[in-house]
Design a protein around this nucleic acid. Structure first.
Lengths: 179, 179
DNA sequence: TTGACATATTCAACAAGTTGAGTATAAGCT
DNA sequence: AGCTTATACTCAACTTGTTGAATATGTCAA
């Protein structure tokens, strides 16, 4: 259900079209809430039915009409209700951990390759996060919105760092097992 | 698709009933692959149809018959194929990060409560993991299976630690914002 | 007796996620 | 012209996740 709430959150910042929301997800929201374009439009349709958002069609020259969505008071109430509700950590479903569990019975070199591959992916993401961090650190008087956004980035940085450290740990143990 | 592969991985260790597999998930596999009992049985049915596993019904006194599942050679081939395939990090969908993003526009005290609640949950999980770690650290000559299992636990420990550290960081920034 | 819990398994309904396909309009490049 | 990309949005089909319900047999405690 929290895709709807993620969208409500974005609309609490400012009204936006479905397309803009989708672009926002692509750019950075997917770091903490992944959703496809189709999912977003589907959800917006449901949210409109529930009265959480309204939209206005705006004709555009040379492009299809755009629908600008905004929060309704009912939508604001729903966002607050959800915000006040204690959350649970997201359920984990992580292939790499299953692969490590399969480690005793499958080829060690494949696991080693997989760990290198994943370390590389996480390093790349961390590098992107550090680049994004530079923008935040350069701000002399950050707005509170900017501060909160920076904190979400901080979580991303910690997450990637901990994956890299763990990959190193596993590879060290693999190396030890070879001796 | 990796629920099937998680089950294949478990069966690579030894044949097991659906119920035993389900208990294994409940006990520790859910730390890195969450699945419900119904999902597991559904998946086992599919896997049997695909020829990845076979099962034998064993009558039991005082209890329903049990089905013991085991890997087929086709199942082993599938597990190896999947193992060799590069994986992607799991998509993230984390309520707490969305709540932080909503932070500028919603009551700060609610966010503070949520962070405390989540810090507490992660601390509790970390404590459980440390208790489990003791069993591994006590082993004088761990089998390779035990070593690999320990590494999955190490990931859990790092994950929980990084959440706790981040909650502390956010709460510190919240406290600063109040001044 | 009833309710809770355990061993064992299965079915159903719905929601959310994934992937493919498509519509419309336009610009730019090969 | 065809392909790619961009702005904008929608529909469909299937898979996976969630929750509820149920079956069968048994033990134990209130």
């Amino acid at each position: 259900m929290a895709l709807a709430h993620t969208i409500l959150t974005l609309l609490s910042y400012s009204p936006a079209s479905g397309y803009d929301i989708s672009k926002r997800f692509e750019e950075d929201i997917s770091c903490y809430w992944k959703a496809s374009q189709q999912q977003i439009y589907r959800e917006l349709g449901k949210m409109a039915k529930q009265g959480w958002v309204t939209h206005q069609s705006i004709p555009q020259a040379g492009k299809p009409d755009k629908k600008i969505y905004e929060l309704t008071p009912v939508g604001e109430t729903e966002l607050l209700r959800w915000f006040a509700e204690p959350s649970e950590p997201t359920p984990i479903r992580e292939d790499l951990l299953v692969k490590v569990l399969a480690g005793p019975y499958l080829p060690r070199d494949l696991l080693h390759q997989e760990l290198k591959h994943r370390r590389h992916l996480h390093e790349r993401q961390l590098s992107d996060y550090h680049a994004m961090e530079q923008c935040f650190l350069g701000a002399s008087e950050p707005t509170s919105a900017e501060q909160f956004r920076y904190l979400t980035l901080r979580r991303g940085i910690r997450y990637e760092e901990s994956w890299i450290d763990w990959c190193d740990e596993v590879m060290a143990v693999l190396a030890q097992m070879e001796n």
